[in-house]
Amino acid sequence: MLEIKNIHVHFKNQNVLNHLNLSIEEGCILGLLGKNGAGKTTLFESLYQSMPFSGDITWKNKRLKREMISYLETENYFYPYITGEEYLAYFTSKKEIEIKEIIEKFNLPMKKYVQYYSSGMKKKLALIGMLMLDKPINILDEPFNGVDFEGVHILYDIIRQLKSENKIVIVSSHIIETLFHTCDKIAFLQNGAIERIYDKEEFSQLNVLKF
């Protein structure tokens, strides 16, 4: 169980996260929904421990360590003169066969410099690197942005695979249909706190919300 208790983040004279509480079970795909500025990325950065916060975040009743998390950010940075093949060489994986299959499905030009990749191709490459880390908690911040139709469906399969491995996946998206397709639950973030968590049978109620 991942437990987020009383998380508070304050900067620039405002509360970004306001005593936020959230519990996520292993094997759960949780969607995070909220308007721009609601605090989604701030929550992810707090989980990844890349910004100061007050409160407690625990994994299996122990303080969460950054090493337990893989984090796919909205914008991915790569050194300009590195190929896709060289980038992935920095990672090690116990799932080489699965990773090779994903690379083939994404059809990335692995010997080409990443600076010539489209934004969608960069997103796919970063996702493969994240999967190779093989962590129990996986954060995907707007993973569908810039990804083509075929890539979206491969992403669906990858997220379901992570679930089958009993891993936690937390995913944000402005495309609400992508959350409907993948998530077990969707948490609505507003005014720096989780206002409500919707179960799968309640997803239709989210259609009336505007983002």
Rank of each mutant, 00 (worst) to 15 (best):
N15H: 12
M1A: 04
G31C: 07
L140F: 11
E3C: 08
N166F: 04
H19K: 15
L140A: 01
Y198F: 14
R196I: 09
F106P: 02
N6I: 01
W59S: 03
S173A: 07
N207V: 05
L2S: 01
A187H: 03
G55F: 05
K163L: 11
Y116D: 15
A89E: 13
K95P: 01
V16E: 06
R160F: 03
E3T: 09
L22I: 04
I7R: 08
I103H: 02
Y48A: 11
L47K: 00
F211D: 15
K111C: 05
I24P: 06
E104S: 15
F188L: 13
Y79A: 00
M130N: 14
I7T: 08
E26G: 10
G27F: 08
D184T: 09
H153L: 12
I159L: 05
Q14R: 15
D141W: 00
I175C: 00
K5R: 15
M1K: 13
K12C: 12
Q161F: 03
D184M: 07
A126G: 07
D148T: 06
V9M: 07
G39Y: 02
K210C: 03
N6A: 09
N145G: 12
F44R: 03
S173H: 10
H174V: 00
P109S: 10
K12D: 14
T178D: 12
N61F: 11
H8Q: 15
H181K: 13
I103Q: 06
N138R: 09
F78M: 04
V16D: 02
Q161M: 11
V171G: 06
Q14I: 02
H174S: 00
E75K: 14
N191V: 01
Y116M: 11
K167E: 11
T74Q: 15
Y71E: 01
L155I: 02
D134G: 12
I24W: 03
L20P: 07
G27D: 10
K12E: 12
F188C: 11
K5N: 11
E177A: 12
I102P: 05
D134M: 09
I170G: 13
L43I: 02
L33T: 01
K111G: 12
M51A: 13
N36A: 06
S204G: 14
N191D: 15
K12F: 13
D157L: 05
E45K: 15
D141M: 10
A126N: 05
K163I: 04
L133P: 00
E86H: 06
S164Y: 05
F144E: 08
S119W: 13
L108Y: 04
I137A: 06
L17T: 08
H181C: 07
K100P: 07
E67Q: 14
N13D: 14
I82T: 13
S173F: 10
K185C: 07
I175A: 10
G37L: 01
K200W: 00
S164V: 03
N36H: 02
A187E: 00
V16F: 09
F53Q: 10
F149A: 13
M51F: 04
Q49A: 05
I29L: 06
L17E: 03
E142L: 06
F44W: 10
